[in-house]
Design a protein around this nucleic acid. Sequence first.
DNA 1: AGCTAATAAGAAGTAATCAC
DNA 2: GTGATTACTTCTTATTAGCT
Lengths: 236, 236
Amino acid sequence: MRVRENIFHLSCFRCNMCSRQLVPGEEFALLPEGLICGTHIKQQHHQQAPLPNEPLPESKPRSTNTGSSGEQKTTRVRTVLNDRQLRILRTCYNNNPRPDALMKEQMTKLTGLSARVIRVWFQNKRCKDKKKAIAAASGDDVISSSVADSPSEDRLKSGMESLSEKDFSSLDCSQIDFNNSSTSTSPALSATGDTYSMYDANKDARSLWNTGDFIPSYPQDDSVSGHLGSSFEDNK
Amino acid sequence: MRVRENIFHLSCFRCNMCSRQLVPGEEFALLPEGLICGTHIKQQHHQQAPLPNEPLPESKPRSTNTGSSGEQKTTRVRTVLNDRQLRILRTCYNNNPRPDALMKEQMTKLTGLSARVIRVWFQNKRCKDKKKAIAAASGDDVISSSVADSPSEDRLKSGMESLSEKDFSSLDCSQIDFNNSSTSTSPALSATGDTYSMYDANKDARSLWNTGDFIPSYPQDDSVSGHLGSSFEDNK
DNA sequence: AGCTAATAAGAAGTAATCAC
DNA sequence: GTGATTACTTCTTATTAGCT
């Protein structure tokens, strides 16, 4: 795991407070003293500087905390998508830029990303493509033809109704290259061991989840346990 | 069953107090401790100290609610239909906008939706179509005849899936024509079934949910039981 | 600095409900 | 059942902010 210029063994990538191993998508901070996980960030803050926030279970965003001293740090968690996840998303997008909920759910399992991340990615991607298409159309005619089919016509493309890595690899998308080349017929979506987090109503403390492993190679048998996970974030 | 981003097995979708299984359209709340049905919501409230936030009591002065006083919970459960379900419904509708009970029952099985959802969908669809026809008639004559379809329908054009299409074909809907008609017996992880979403009264409350397994089912039979809802998107 | 993930505001579409 | 309304989901678009 790399954090800026620092590189950690996966097994060393742990919270300094609780020794829990940190997983991708999770919130953490890198301090001079070491890493700390999301749940301990606030404590840390309290010790170092009284944080004025924490009061609003309201979750209703900023705006309101005007005069008060501390701008709550609203640290935005930015998910970093790895190559495999990106490849999956792109392939699905090419197939159907507007997947329905069922599709998204499957992508969730396949990528280990949260529904939220999936949705946002598709939104951004659509928007980006549209902009690109428009720019291309106005600026250049030659290109436009090839790009033109994206914004509106995409919707007509058929979507994959089910995803599994096996099925996925069967798509005629040359981009896809799962290095495991699973020839097994195993249904890849077991989703056992998913652990989801929850929030309790009383605090806006970010809860963390274990996202399972970050192993670059993905399991080729159906024991996907631990493969799940997601970066998921508190609501508003 | 989906509750915001939480997904439940149908069999797990029960009141925490009385263990009664909840059904779509029913009032309930999702608290950190779990689900509770409408009849226990109030008790819960009384016991449970004033919730820190409880912003929505005023949300809907629904007035005459079911017998009891309270209400304010008005959590409306909105089913999110997936592409396949929509396609089935539309096809049947095109064939016969006023299906009889028998027909509806078949659709129930086929889509995994409840009879109520089917009925409501047809009602809304008829109404919508009528409005559209009127609008079209007054505005433009030429287009009116061939239009009939909403623009949003593009979204439905997704293809490939294979859940009991054979059952579907057993319906005497001559018009049915799945343009994909993928005859492949590929495992479709279809997980159709009812998909419900809803709001919990306490917006911040999020509960834990087990998603349990999502074992890809091979939809050969019409046994929809055990299939879980899809549609899941996260909160905003 | 560029790319892009995340947030948010507003609009559109529609499932569910209400009133009849 | 119809028609009107409400409530919820998802979309588009613009903006903010985190990594490399």
